[in-house]
Amino acid sequence: MKKIALKDIAANFGVSISTVSKAVNDSHEISKELKEKIQKYAKEHHYRPNHVALSLLKKNTKTIGVIVPNILNYFFTLVFYGIEKTANSRGYSIISCISDESYLKELKTVELLSTGTVEGLILSLSEETQAKGNVEHLQNLIENQIPLVMFDRVSEEVDCDKVVVDDFEAGYKTTKHLLKTGCKRIVIVSAIYNSSVGKLRVDGYKKALKENGVEYDERLIVEVRKNDDLQLLISLLLDNKEIDAIIALDEITAVDTLNILKSKDIEVPKEISIVGFTNGRLSKYVSPALTMVSQHGQYIGEQAANILIDRIEKEGDMPYTTKLVKTSLIERDSTKKILGNSSSY
């Protein structure tokens, strides 16, 4: 027999999950008539409350969980810094975990943290979770009234608070900037091709090409898998295509690409321009310094932490919110300049 959840009861009566929870827990806030109807329905359908989740609701641990997919990506390091800084200022501690882009690890970590250890979760989906499209483990959190804020890589199937980067616009404006510098054969090198953010950036890239009358060539989208040799991929690309710009969708790939081009005596940006994503320290100190798209990771972390803690501390139903964060182009020496203009952003 399929286990009935709070959301199923709520849907039957046309009320909120919060109302159902109060009714099954015999709260005085619910009218006697509605409470009896909900309790009867729950009993008839063999509803069993999640005692762990209920104990979490009643216990003030002053701790929140954070799950990021990849700590080697400097963007997630910045987000975590913003979360920790804000949480600490509001009297909360952090338990941080890494899913390592694995669905199974993410699933097990969510289950572990939702056993009463933390009062809420901040999470960015692993690439494998997004590829599978299975977010049942997160829907269970919402059904059991465990506060959740998703950031960067999110799912529209989960009703919760979200903080997202305008990745479509970032891909669009970055490509548009390169086109204005005279580049025409622009490559995207992506190690996050299965993620929502990677796909949105490529979509923005396509729009910019179309608007400027440049034909889209799928061969210029280089997908870098976990065990791929980036040097080999870039070498094959250079052998077969006359390219004049590369957009790398993360910082490490951008730095590696720069070093590969330099090893082949290709002048950057005279022959090929390079733009990367995430304005980390590495990009500033390589030569030439890399032009980067800043996603404002620390600010995203601060926003996510404040939204989660507000939801934990405020009683009553709060509407879910989605905050959209714009990116900025940090121009350095790895791209040509636009004549008569400093930036297209």
Rank of each mutant, 00 (worst) to 15 (best):
Q295C: 01
I234N: 05
I307F: 01
V224D: 01
S114I: 07
E119G: 12
E169A: 14
R185M: 14
R185D: 12
C97W: 15
G182E: 02
S21V: 02
N212F: 03
E251Y: 09
I330K: 15
L282T: 11
K105R: 10
K337L: 15
K207A: 10
S93K: 10
H51P: 08
V325H: 01
S196Y: 08
D256I: 12
K314T: 13
E157V: 05
L236K: 14
R225D: 07
E267M: 15
G280W: 06
S273F: 08
S31V: 12
K180M: 12
S342M: 15
L324I: 11
R90F: 14
Y81I: 11
K85M: 07
T253G: 05
T181M: 08
I243N: 07
V255T: 13
S334Y: 04
G82D: 06
S27W: 09
K207D: 10
R90L: 13
Y320D: 01
V214Q: 07
Y81V: 11
N134L: 06
G182L: 00
K210R: 14
K323V: 15
I309N: 03
L113K: 09
S18P: 09
K162A: 00
L261Y: 02
K323T: 14
G301K: 06
I9S: 13
V154R: 02
T117G: 03
N341P: 11
I338V: 09
A53M: 05
D26S: 09
V154S: 03
N88F: 15
N50D: 10
D256E: 12
G120S: 10
E136R: 12
Y92T: 05
S55Q: 11
G276P: 03
T19H: 07
P69H: 07
N227M: 13
H51Q: 13
A245M: 05
Y103C: 00
A53K: 03
I192R: 07
V158C: 03
T335V: 15
L54M: 13
V255N: 09
L282S: 12
S343C: 15
I186A: 05
V135D: 06
S31D: 13
M292N: 03
E211K: 08
V268D: 05
Q130H: 00
I247D: 02
H177C: 01
N134D: 13
L339T: 14
V197H: 11
S55W: 15
I221T: 01
I274M: 12
I221S: 05
S195Y: 03
D152T: 06
M1F: 10
E106A: 07
E136H: 13
V135Y: 00
K37D: 02
Y299F: 14
K199V: 00
T117N: 02
T181E: 11
K3D: 13
I300L: 07
A304K: 03
D26W: 02
F13Q: 07
N50K: 08
V165S: 07
I300A: 00
S93R: 09
L308D: 03
L123M: 00
K85S: 10
S342D: 15
I221R: 06
T253A: 04
E215Q: 13
R219W: 11
L220Y: 04
S27I: 08
G14K: 08
L178N: 05
G182N: 04
I188A: 04
D244F: 10
K173D: 11
I83N: 05
Q39S: 09
G133Y: 05
S27H: 06
S328P: 11
N194F: 15
T117Y: 01
H28A: 12
I64L: 13
I252S: 09
